[in-house]
């Protein structure tokens, strides 16, 4: 899809909690081998997807310089809201000071909700229904202790302030393409604490089919080819998947590596591809094209093409600081932080 009016990112932000647990520490307890990432982020006892979303959103709003009253939408994509019923979006909006004249909604599509929020915010701005909109992807991923998900289930958030394209924009949101099917590779039933997944079924028919179809769909629709992109960012449940997806689509490894953060923070679910995008925007120069492809179980992918503008590089997010700022915890402290001690 191509937006009727040109829209762009005027501010962005990311959040990663300070705590980390090394996968070798999880292996020590559960005896696993060949961990998919090096270490992952762990939220503090007082953090959840809502608080992380706020931190990322506040950074995006501050960077944009946009007036609070101009924020017409706060769209929060997450699969780990603190409440089953009661929106995170209202708390975040109130804390940001953008209430009450705002479209505020929580959105769920496993790890894809964040990019879908970005597309919808862009569409709302493009249609001139609102002046600016905040799109947030945030998750505090839960995994059953000992489950293979535990090695990667991380925590983090990313947020983007979308406005009509201007000379000050960080990047233009060029076009988007969504691809969904009913593919149950991963789910969590109402009232269940931990999700279930289907092991190797989450690969070929789920992740790769949707990611590749969405990326190809986008390129075909607007007539772009892999060589037109300077960077490509995929949803990163582990380090292997995005590299393999890049290879299958014909992107060189150099294009995908700059956006990979999951080796250091794990899989941040709805924030995963968006934190990758923040990482890329923090190092991009004006006039570069970026492809972002999310993947959400259930299943679907959003592919979004962005072109950086003059605003990029003028302001950076705090992501590189957040990636460096860490307090390592052992498995005992990790279980306390995750609230597993009851």
């Amino acid at each position: 899809m191509i937006f009727s009016t040109k829209v762009g990112i005027s501010g962005y932000g990311a959040y990663v909690p300070v705590y980390r647990v090394r996968d070798s520490e999880i292996e020590r307890i559960w005896g696993g081998e060949g961990a998919p990432v090096e270490e992952k982020s762990v939220p503090g006892l007082d953090e959840d997807s809502l608080t992380m979303a706020f931190e990322a959103a506040r950074e995006a709003l501050t960077m944009s310089g946009v007036n609070r009253e101009d924020v017409g939408a706060v769209l929060v994509g997450s699969e780990s809201p603190p409440y089953a019923v009661k929106p995170s979006a209202t708390v975040i909006s109130e804390a940001l000071g953008v209430t009450p004249k705002v479209i505020a909604i929580d959105m769920e599509f496993a790890c894809k909700a964040g990019t879908t929020a970005l597309i919808l915010a862009s569409a709302l701005v493009a249609s001139k229904a609102i002046k600016c909109g905040l799109a947030i992807g945030t998750d505090n991923a839960q995994a059953k202790p000992g489950d293979e998900l535990e090695y990667t289930a991380g925590a983090g958030a990313a947020a983007f302030l979308i406005s009509e394209l201007s000379s000050d924009s960080v990047a233009e949101i060029e076009c988007a393409f969504s691809y969904v099917t009913d593919t149950p590779d991963f789910w969590r039933r109402e009232g269940e604490k931990y999700p279930r997944h289907t092991y190797r079924f989450t690969g070929e028919p789920a992740y790769f089919h949707h990611v590749i179809s969405a990326a190809k769909g986008l390129m075909e629709e607007v007539g772009l080819k892999p060589s037109d992109f300077d960077y490509v960012v995929f949803h990163q449940p582990n380090v292997r998947f995005p590299l393999r997806a890049a290879q299958q689509l014909g992107f060189s490894t150099e294009r995908v590596k700059p956006g990979i953060v999951c080796d250091k923070i794990g899989n941040t679910y709805a924030a995963s591809s968006l934190i990758g995008l923040v990482r890329v925007l923090d190092q991009a120069k004006p006039g570069q094209r970026i492809l972002v492809v999310s993947f959400g179980s259930g299943a679907g992918s959003d592919a979004i093409s962005l072109v950086t503008r003059e605003g990029v590089g003028k302001r950076r997010s705090s992501l590189s600081t957040l990636l460096e700022r860490k307090i390592y915890v052992d498995y005992g402290a990790y279980t306390k932080l995750k609230g597993l001690l009851g």
Binding site: G44, L45, D46, E47, D48, L50, T51, F54, E55, V91
Partner: peptide
């Protein structure tokens, strides 16, 4: 300042958020 959870009124009660510092 950071935005964090302070307390839960009950396991099934509302969560009270507020400002902390890091």
């Amino acid at each position: 300042a950071v935005f964090r959870r302070y307390r839960e009124q009950a396991p099934n009660g509302i969560i009270e958020y507020g400002i902390k510092f890091r």
